[in-house]
Simulated scan of single mutants.
Amino acid sequence: MPISEIILLIIFGIVSFIGILGSGFILVVNGHKCFQSRKMTTYDFLLTSLSTSRFIMQLGLLIYYILYFTLKINSRLFLDYLIFFSWMFFDMISHWCATWLNVFYCVKVANVANPIFLWLKARINVLVPRLLGLSIAIFMVTCLPSLVDYFGHTKWCNLTETLLENASQGGVCSTPDSFFIPIQLSFYVINSCLSTISIILLLISLWRHTRNLKKSGVGVKDLNTQVHIKVMAFLLFWFLFNFVDFVALLVYSGLAIWTDDGTVHDLHIGIWLSVFPSAHSIILILNNPKMKEMYICIIKKMYAHIISIGHSTS
């Protein structure tokens, strides 16, 4: 392997490992909390679904990249397509979970004097799990025609390696990217629109709340304002990293549609596609006081353990 490829693989491994640890930490802590209380709130359900989907997605992608660049797996093998479909499915689930989590935050925190919004506020705990399930079901149903079209189009493809190499590269075989990424991009746009609306509503709510406090002569550093600002910071960070993820997917889509060189293996794209879920997992931990306290405690214990090992060896 070239040295540049090794460096990129190491960077990808570090970014993915951070995301896997973050999602795994959220999953374990949240699961332990639900097991002790014997109940699962809507927030816990969204957080558990999000961390589970991201854990599976990033772990599978990391294993695949390691196998591909160390064992040089043939990009036309069944494993290649299995990894792609698994990544697309769990990536889309994680985006829907994150989107409905943003909507849940917005409805719970924002104060908007609108009958529809007030109706949502009273029923959001029941509606969000159903909307998440409906979103995933719609995504799966939407993918079915493309799935049938893809396998119908590639039934004479070189899956058994019986065709010449230049035949498979000349358009006889088609990668799954060109069939499914347009659908994925469409759902990305829907997710981004819903999250943008949530951010705008929270901004309006925070601005009105701060204006009312100033009129009444009360300081703006009250608890409600702090909650607004905290949730706003969380959503803005999500929006920033989601934008990076969306741009990376656009670049990947362009490469996949206009070329046929197995761009799923491009480590540059893999790194950018892993930045968003990894960063968002860390933001979720830091945004939750109990998880943040436990996370810092674990880091301190690990640091103390490493120091003690260093002293004992010296």
Rank of each mutant, 00 (worst) to 15 (best):
Val28Met: 08
Ile296Trp: 12
Gln36Pro: 06
Pro115Asn: 10
Ser192Asp: 13
Leu206Ile: 01
Phe89His: 07
Leu132His: 10
Gly60Met: 13
Val15Arg: 00
Asn287Arg: 04
Gly170Lys: 11
Thr42Ile: 02
Leu201Ala: 10
Phe45Gly: 15
Tyr105Ile: 02
Val29Thr: 13
Thr263Asp: 07
Gln36Val: 04
Glu161Ala: 07
Phe69Pro: 00
Asn191Trp: 04
Arg211Ile: 08
Ile83Pro: 01
Ala122Tyr: 07
Gly262Thr: 08
Ala167Thr: 15
Ile14Cys: 02
Ile309Val: 12
Val172Trp: 02
Trp258Arg: 09
Pro145Leu: 03
Phe55Ala: 08
Ile11Asp: 01
Leu267Tyr: 04
Asp261His: 11
Lys292Glu: 04
Tyr303Ala: 11
Asn242Arg: 08
Val109Glu: 00
His32Met: 15
Leu61Arg: 05
His268Thr: 10
Trp238Lys: 04
Pro289Ala: 11
Pro289Cys: 12
Phe243Asn: 06
Trp238Thr: 03
Val148Trp: 03
Val244Thr: 12
Leu50Phe: 12
Asn287Gly: 14
Tyr43Pro: 00
Tyr64Val: 08
Tyr68Leu: 09
Ser94Lys: 06
Leu185Lys: 04
Leu255Glu: 13
Asp266Cys: 00
Val220Ala: 11
Cys193Ser: 11
Val218Ser: 10
Asp260Val: 05
Gly310His: 07
Phe84Cys: 02
Leu203Ala: 08
Leu235Phe: 03
Gly171Asp: 13
Asn114Thr: 06
Ala233Val: 11
Ile181Ala: 06
Glu293Trp: 04
Gln184Asn: 15
Leu62Val: 05
Leu59Lys: 01
Phe90Glu: 01
Leu127Thr: 05
